[in-house]
């Protein structure tokens, strides 16, 4: 029992280590964190590589209608599509994708 005492006594008089996420003191993620996925509609050539490598089938490429459907709630944020895309059209930033009350899907219209 006494072996725990110094720890709790020290904790009692120091700042808590938890944070009021997501309201206050948000720590910046480390560089290289695999967060949200974005598609660059200008660069994409609708080759469909990303859809093929995606282990979660979160990307659907519709080359006829020239659009990409992305399901963020299927995505496992592994980043394979980012590595695969030869056009560099897919990017991943360093922030968590926010929670949501419904399962949304994102639609990208490709211009080229």
């Amino acid at each position: 029992m006494p072996w725990m005492f110094p720890t709790i006594w020290k904790n009692l008089f120091s700042r808590p280590v938890t944070r009021r996420y997501p309201f206050k003191d948000i720590r910046e993620p480390f560089p290289g964190y695999r967060g949200k996925i974005y598609f660059d509609t200008n660069k994409c050539d609708l080759c469909g590589d990303c859809a093929r490598v995606c282990p979660a089938e979160a990307i659907e490429v519709d080359s006829e209608n020239k659009q990409i459907k992305y399901y963020p709630f299927r995505c496992i944020y592994c980043g394979t599509c980012v590595e695969t895309c030869l056009q560099g059209a897919i990017t991943q930033d360093e922030h968590y994708s926010p929670p949501n009350t419904e399962k949304i899907e994102e639609l990208y219209k490709i211009e080229a």
Binding site: I8, W9, N11, L12, S14, P16, T18, R19, R20
Partner: peptide, 11 residues
């Protein structure tokens, strides 16, 4: 609150 602080939490 105090228990949380002893454990390093905000509580």
């Amino acid at each position: 609150k105090l228990t949380a602080h002893m454990q390093g939490r905000i509580g």
